[in-house]
Design a protein around this nucleic acid. Structure first.
Lengths: 139, 139
DNA sequence: GTCGTCCTACTCGGATAAGGCTTGTCCGAGTCTAATCGG
DNA sequence: CCGATTAGACTCGGACAAGCCTTATCCGAGTAGGACGAC
């Protein structure tokens, strides 16, 4: 499940993707999106460290996207904050579960885990803003 | 994400589905599947309260499936222990998120949430045991 | 043989607790812009 | 008019703390099966 801080991150990143002119200080992001100021700062710094955001220091500074919105995937943002999203502990790779050889549950879960990964990797900020569609057809 | 206790629940339920003759005491389930005894008891009771397991009290008693393995879905087991699995808080329904009207993230997440639900609801214990395939084709 | 009693194995339901993780807060230090001031 | 200084706005990085949720543990009470003994 997507954590609260990750949700904040998504909100802020999407906001930045839609903003013109690009770039905003923590105060603007925090106030407009309901994220506590100090916490927003912490999250934004992590996003910057991951290379998703670009920092401009000093007066008039703030954060902006480091790439075009269609080059930033949902998954990337999630990974930067809470690590790879997994349905199950066992999905963390070999050795994550002692019963791995005998347990058939993780094997059954793998296909949907792969779909989830594909979806999150395949959906960009542009997709969310509605400037382009996700790969799925509209009803 | 599937929690540890839910994982235990799945293991035990799948074990019971595969066991012949049906039914086992907590001690057997606990020892064979690496679940702490007292904790296993607690989890099994919740599964029984949810109608997934059947209880037989007293000496020689224990737990057994209340239905045929192909009539018990993964989702049901998960819901019994940790509630409905959600990608996001916002998926909890109307009112879960204050920004719901303006936020496009949850809207984008909904399709994959639906797929996840469909998968978990559509996969039964039999599917996991390999006695029948999930609806997806084998590679 | 039959009935009743007791022992033992097992679950029920809830109280209780440790620990970790999430969710924040806060602060001194560093960085940059712009305004101000002196020449 | 030009350059240097200063004030202010903003981020950096990390320490620190509250609270909740997960992950258990434990125990008295209830229930059932089987053995054993009395009749």
């Amino acid at each position: 499940m997507i954590r609260n801080d990750t949700d904040y991150a998504l909100r802020m990143v999407v906001y930045l993707a839609g903003r013109n002119p690009p770039g905003a200080a923590t105060a603007e992001l925090s106030a407009g999106l309901g994220v506590p100021h100090g916490f927003a700062q912490k999250i934004l710094r992590r996003l910057a460290a991951a290379g998703i955001l670009k920092v401009r220091l000093g007066r008039g500074g703030g954060f902006s996207l480091n790439r075009k919105p269609d080059r930033v995937s949902l998954r990337e943002v999630i990974v930067a904050i809470q690590g790879p999203p997994r349905l199950n502990r066992c999905m963390a790779g070999p050795g994550a579960c002692a019963l791995q050889t005998s347990c058939k549950i993780s094997a059954s879960l793998k296909p949907i885990q792969r779909k989830l990964d594909a979806f999150l990797s395949g959906t960009s900020l542009s997709d969310i803003l509605g400037r382009a569609r996700p790969r799925r057809k509209a009803p």
